[in-house]
Design a protein around this nucleic acid. Structure first.
Ligand SMILES: [Mn+2]
Ligand SMILES: [Mn+2]
Ligand SMILES: [Zn+2]
Ligand SMILES: [Zn+2]
Lengths: 148, 148
DNA sequence: CATGCTAAAGATAATTATTATCATATCAAG
DNA sequence: CTTGATATGATAATAATTATCTTTAGCATG
């Protein structure tokens, strides 16, 4: 788990920049740093955590900017919010289809892929409900570290 | 969707009462009302929403009691918290295995069952991560009502 | 490469969601 | 009915997120 090293960062940054241009979003220093930090994070950080990490390099950034920027990115489909059981929102820049395991003890979130599931058709009753845009699996359990 | 009328309420209340006794939880008026309200709700209400509904019948109840009681119930496995993308926690008393569809427009949460999925084995990599206790699917999309 | 328009950032404060503290009330055992 | 432990309600605190408003800085244009 979590050993799939993220696609090359420089490539992601280039794509990010052009996506901003396309979406009429200004490519600011803050946005670049927030995106970069999230893109290289493997732990699905919350806004507060991202803020702490970015502050080291960019001490003038405000927490509010992090929140607003994440919301903007999400709206434009540049990042996504991870479904969780806690009250704090968690984010990721990895947009490739994958799923999550959450440790109910330490709150860590890890990725896993399951193409077999991705290819399966949803049960018929779901079609009546409306139009599904994302299929996420959220496993909950106790990670190896927490199980000691 | 959502047409599976909840198992008979009286039965749920009886089971709830004996579960409380077994767990050394006092069977208070408030706990009964909170559980009853949640058991008959089909919409996975947040604490605030439950509070509003219960207040009509029990005007002296406090929001804090609702929060504490839900936390207690959850700890004892009497109810569960629904994974969501929003910052407000949502709950349900239905403990039978099932999954959720979330409307990203109106925030409504509906149930669906998928025994085919429930019986499938998880991919091998997950076993290395730790011990999984719950497998939830969270579909995100636009419900028929919101799609107009 | 200066100028000006406009979106974005930062400071500040306000909301919203949830949790803690503590005095009083209530459950349930004897 | 008395008693002792627990739960509740009042109050206040904390955590998470969002709004307002002034200043700053992308970036298009000449
Ligand atoms: Mn992920
Ligand atoms: Mn449900
Ligand atoms: Zn853990
Ligand atoms: Zn809807």
């Amino acid at each position: 788990m979590n050993n799939c090293s993220q696609h090359n960062l420089t490539g992601m940054m280039t794509k990010f920049t052009s996506a901003c241009r396309k979406a009429d979003l200004k490519v600011t220093h803050q946005r670049l740093e927030i995106y970069r930090e999230l893109a290289q994070a493997e732990d699905h950080p919350a806004a507060e955590m991202l803020y702490k990490r970015i502050s080291k390099r960019l001490p003038t950034i405000s927490l509010d900017t992090v929140y607003r920027t994440l919301a903007t990115f999400e709206k434009h489909g540049l990042i996504s919010r991870v479904p969780t059981l806690e009250s704090q929102a968690r984010f990721e820049a990895k947009m490739a289809r994958h799923h999550h395991v959450v440790c109910s003890k330490c709150g860590s979130i890890s990725d896993f892929i399951w193409s077999g599931f991705d290819e399966t058709h949803l049960p018929a009753q779901v079609a009546d409900w409306g139009k599904v845009t994302r299929k996420n699996i959220v496993l909950v359990g106790i990670c190896a570290a927490c199980a000691r």
